[in-house]
Design a protein around this nucleic acid. Structure first.
Lengths: 332, 332
DNA sequence: GCCAGATGTGGATACGTTTTCATGAATCTC
DNA sequence: GAGATTCATGAAAACGTATCCACATCTGGC
């Protein structure tokens, strides 16, 4: 049996109980303005007695903005975005800020819709892994949102603060490692939103004097199915490749699976490096050599950036690291 | 260069532009009440012309409630909760409802804090994987929140709608499968919040006439470190065990890792079954036999339940399934 | 003991929406 | 065609808060 007649006490109730005006209560509780110790005491006591909690609704309307931060990620099921989200939540929760989350599935239309929804809610701080192009974010900026991009920069919005991993160095390290083992026909399994890494991949090959074979650069969408299709297609179409660099953990997963089903032995037949270190990389057979990325840190830093809007720091680049396990061997 | 002087147009602007009253605009746009086709047209045109989007702030204050749903999970990094969250988001986004997410880390205090925050925001619909006991939720019910629990029931709140997996059947299936392979000394690696499964584990052993060895029932907290410590401790302390049932994917992960480091061969030395099917289960060596749980479905159903508050459906139990791969063998 | 300034205080207003209520017009009933 | 009923409509109130502004009280300086 629930007593639903219990009205929440408002600032007015507190004012009456403390025998002061509502303005005074507001000042005392929000810490702004001045108040004598005596009234201060009265107000605090009354608020505690009535178990008063200020209504975010009233405050938001008055202030014309919703506290908290909006978070847009492609897929919360991807461990990378899971860790990124965790970082955002850790920072936001310690700052007492609520987080509104939405998944874009890397679909620009969906992203636009979510942006609209955030504007409607007057959320003014947004962290996003962008899937659309720069224009898509026009309405957001026009509405005065302060935005921080994570994982991917968006072309034409270079002035927007962005937190990324050091893709160039990460890719170069991986390619050099593979080349050092004698590999020349190296494939890159990439995903929507990894233009940066594809570019770095070409550059790294160029620098080593290895000709770029465009057929070995494959792009998938952000889903397990698409990743598997891409990996499987790659192995079947180009069985002459000797090494694969997977652009993310789902792509790595797909590569391992496809290799297994097509009876490519790792690392005897094909060497494999995966972007993003995940717990199972150590568990699978053979243990996967990876380029780790500080996903959780990325989220945390992005949240810091979006909360302290004052600083005009442009782009934060976080280091990656090659972790050698057992999935790479000399060219067969 | 951003033009920040752009004020968002309000319902009043639309009313003026359409030469009608604000009440009429509200009625037309929200679809409630009646309006003549002519005015209807005028209002719609004016709204489109001004690019009007109703402010959620004003509406929320007037309605005395925030739309959308709050979601409380222990750890967004755990693939199980990732999929559950995905289910919630899928349902919520197709209903146009925003989702506020928070992570409890299975800490009741943190949970209480998050509940308080939701009340402050006047969020009235909450989906939670509860970590605290029934009392903790008192304030939420008193505030009139409609709550749906997921994954775990909470004792003393049996009248609250809850979506769970069929733990009893799942555990029994696993135990019977192991017993059928000849195993008697079966350990259960469990986690905070799995009282239900522990009970089912005892029942299943009882039913088979296998004596319950309390030392083989281990409890960990909801973190990778704790899971690993529990698994490692179990193997070292009781090397006589022949099979392990892991209560979740992190526990399974820990068991695989600990077994590997202590040179227990799976399944020769020890058989392993894990609750929760995850993509890497197929990739690791040997591929893991699992009890799959419909995590995404769970989230989706919970969201459905919390959105259609009308129905007074109590508890939804979703089926689990034994998926045999390669991590179980006959007793050595 | 009087004025300038500082300080504490509360009334009133605005934020944008939904909903109630009253009013006038239009339609229907017999 | 007169009364009854429905319909469309807009003015106004309310939601809970923060802040502007005016007023009252107090402090210190001469």
């Amino acid at each position: 049996m629930r007593v639903s007649g219990q009205r929440r006490s408002t600032i007015k109730d507190v004012a009456e109980a403390a025998e002061v005006g509502v303005a005074t209560v507001s000042r005392v509780l929000s810490g702004t303005g001045s108040a004598s110790p005596a009234t201060r005491e009265k107000v605090l006591a009354a608020a505690a007695r009535l178990d008063y909690r200020p209504s975010a609704l009233g405050r938001n309307l008055r202030r014309q903005r919703t506290g908290g931060i909006g978070l847009l990620v492609p897929d919360i099921t991807d461990p990378f975005y899971g860790r990124l989200t965790d970082g955002v939540l850790t920072c936001a929760q310690s700052a007492g800020e609520p987080v509104m989350i939405g998944t874009t599935r890397d679909d620009p239309e969906r992203e636009a819709q979510l942006i609209g929804s955030l504007i409607e809610e007057s959320v003014e701080r947004v962290i996003a892994v962008p899937s659309g192009d720069g224009e898509m974010w026009g309405p957001a900026f026009r509405a005065g949102l302060s935005v921080v991009f994570a994982e991917r920069p968006v072309q034409g919005r270079e002035n927007i603060p962005t937190v990324v991993a050091d893709d160039r160095t990460g890719v170069r390290t991986a390619v050099e490692y593979l080349a050092g083992l004698g590999h020349r026909r190296i494939a890159f399994l990439s995903r929507h939103g990894q233009a940066q890494r594809v570019r770095a991949f070409r550059e790294a090959l160029d620098a080593l004097g290895v000709p770029v074979d465009e057929e070995l650069i494959v792009r998938a969408h952000s889903s397990r199915d698409s990743a598997y299709a891409a990996a499987s297609g790659l192995f079947q179409h180009r069985p002459d490749l000797t090494a694969v660099l997977a652009g993310g953990n789902m792509l790595g997963e797909a590569a391992v699976l496809a290799a297994k089903e097509l009876d490519f032995r790792v690392p005897r037949d094909v060497s494999l490096i995966m972007f993003d270190d995940v717990p199972w990389a150590e568990l699978c057979y053979p243990p996967l050599t990876v380029i780790s990325q500080p996903a959780q840190d990325m989220g945390y830093r992005a949240a810091e950036l979006v909360l302290r809007e004052g600083r005009r720091s442009r782009t934060v680049t976080l280091p990656t690291e090659l972790i050698v396990r057992g999935s790479c061997g000399p060219r067969r």
